[in-house]
Amino acid sequence: MEHIISVTVENKFGVLSRIAGLFSGRGFNIESLSVAPTLDPSMSQMTIVTSGDERIVEQIVKQLNKLIDVIKVVDLNESDFVSRETALIKVHTRQEDRAEALRIADIFRANVIDSTPATYTIEVTGDPKKIEAIINLLQPLGIKELTRTGRVAVAREPLRFSAAQPKKVARE
């Protein structure tokens, strides 16, 4: 099953390779990983999308916690969360397709952020399903390039450190 894990880490040289090394060294799946500084510049926030059965995800959370540069690990699947991903899609547009491209972008509340005589670059944000959907519709026009950010996610309400899940939230 897919899990989204939010990891707060030291904003230091080499931390990303420790996390990546953990996943590759132990054969854990990693579907996407995004990272950026937090309000406190000494920390970074990572969102890792991974998958595995309960036992594997428990190990992933514990192994992440064990890393010395990791400050906090939250398995967001333990609660309600919202997640978003952004994609930049450069569509090849012949004259007759340009209106169609704009129409599709409009339906998905996507923005055209760049245009040339032969292309539009469309920015779309949403959950993975929405992004898949717009890609499917734009594909017939001809997608020249596509980059996706990977998902970022946040819990819907402040997580309570409830007795039922101390292992997942706090460091052991």
Binding site: E58, Q59, K62, Q63, N65, K66, K167, E172
Partner: peptide
């Protein structure tokens, strides 16, 4: 002392970190 040792290979009924 290491939580990752617990339930890594074997199901545990009473884990004590």
């Amino acid at each position: 002392i290491d939580p990752t040792s617990i339930r890594k290979n074997i199901h545990v009924d009473i884990p004590i970190v």
